[in-house]
Nucleic acid binder design. Structure first.
Lengths: 238, 238
DNA sequence: ACCTGAACACCGTTCAAGT
DNA sequence: ACCTGAACACCGTTCAAGT
């Protein structure tokens, strides 16, 4: 199967796409998915795109701006879009939709999620993982238009972001492939072996080892989410 | 005021302490407290200690091992020490003590806390921020000896770590001094101004700006902790 | 307009050499 | 035994130069 020549006269197979901010960011996301955050360098990403590192600086304002772009591109998937969305069952339906949307992102890009979780937001009240003005605006107006007071909407926003951050950062860490973070492991050297042998000194940990490793994250997430929605409901009816 | 000469014949004022792993780690913690994680380099830390970077390699197994040492030194403050501790009021007292201990660490070292939160643990079930075999062993045996079944103790461990991680990572981010993370801000350049002007496009965010910025973290933490303890109590009595 | 080569100031890390 | 100088292979970033 020969590689053809397209009408424009460039070979299609390896010819790189025209560079753009969007292309660079999506290449960076896929790079991090495969190689981990620590491996993402301007030079390495340039090579992945068939270009010198310096070319990227036309489109992103340095590495920090690239990371910011990655965060923004992921979080913008959570914008409320009335055109394409099924109707929501009240504020609880909205919070369910939002929670599962963030969770899907964390599952699809576990190696990127720590970036969303720990990069310092532009304002202190722009709490991870909901790091977008539009998302926060949607959140507040959805709740306020459905009976929340200003204060209870803000309290809900704070409780909701803490809840998502704690659960999803731990789920993402558990799902990050271990070869993606080989860097830290090889460096540890002996510590993996010494870790496993030192477990025997801790009776409960040893005894419960297999149960501790079981994954119940689906059930735990849903149960905690339900609990939070119930709490919010009670404060509403106070 | 002249600098004296001590009995050993070395000048006391600037003479560096004898290097050791502990000294290096505690210097690194204080360096991160003042300058942020991104500024911590082997060379810079060496200079802080009055020594070349290469000297550190006698005591720490490279930068990754240094970061691991920082995490371990912080988390080991949470070891249960019967000798020095006031008696605990049952499992609820233990969980209260543990929660407030982790919170104190997060408040004292907000720039270090993301390290505790996001470094990949040695085992997947060693969940941040309780990243220590001894702490997990204490946790499980305290609860099991006080009436928890194996399964409910493990469920409590999972819920407790998610709770602490979400709340404390956000509290730590809010408390990290903005000049400590100047690196990301200067790089952003224009984005701080454009961010503040774009706020006007979001009515709820604009209207609630000052309320959004208020700090209720003490009350929120205590209320969420109480709620969690109540939930655990109910599953115990099921 | 878009990309690159060369250069600069930094990294982490190794190792032979000093004391 | 403990620390260092010099070196290596990498970074991010700038800027004049190419096409």
């Amino acid at each position: 199967m020969a590689i053809g020549t397209d009408p424009e006269g460039v070979d299609t197979a390896e010819r790189r796409l025209r560079l753009s901010r969007e292309l660079i960011i999506s290449a960076a996301v896929s790079f991090v998915d495969h190689n981990g955050l620590a491996a993402l360098t301007m030079r390495g990403l340039g090579k992945e795109l068939g270009v010198e590192a310096m070319s990227l600086y036309r489109y992103v304002n340095g590495r920090e701006d690239l990371l910011e772009g990655i965060v923004e591109s992921m979080v913008s998937e959570l914008h409320l879009d009335p055109a394409t969305m099924e109707p929501l069952n009240g504020w609880q339906g909205y919070l369910q939709w939002l929670a599962h949307g963030v969770r899907r992102i964390a599952h699809e890009h576990p190696a990127v999620f720590p970036l969303i979780a720990t990069r310092h937001p532009a304002a202190p009240w722009l709490r991870p993982p909901l790091r977008s003005l539009k998302v926060v605006e949607d959140f507040l107006s959805e709740l306020i238009s459905r009976g929340f007071s200003d204060e209870s909407a803000i309290a809900a926003y704070r409780a909701f972001s803490s809840f998502l951050l704690g659960h999803l950062l731990l789920e993402a860490a558990a799902r990050t492939k271990h070869d993606v973070m080989a860097e830290s492991l090889i460096q540890a050297g002996l510590s993996q072996d010494s870790f496993e042998s030192s477990i025997t000194q801790y009776p409960q940990v040893s005894r419960l080892g297999t149960s501790l490793s079981e994954d119940h994250s689906d059930n735990e997430f849903e149960a905690s989410l339900e609990n939070m929605l119930d709490r919010l409901d009670r404060t509403l009816a106070h």
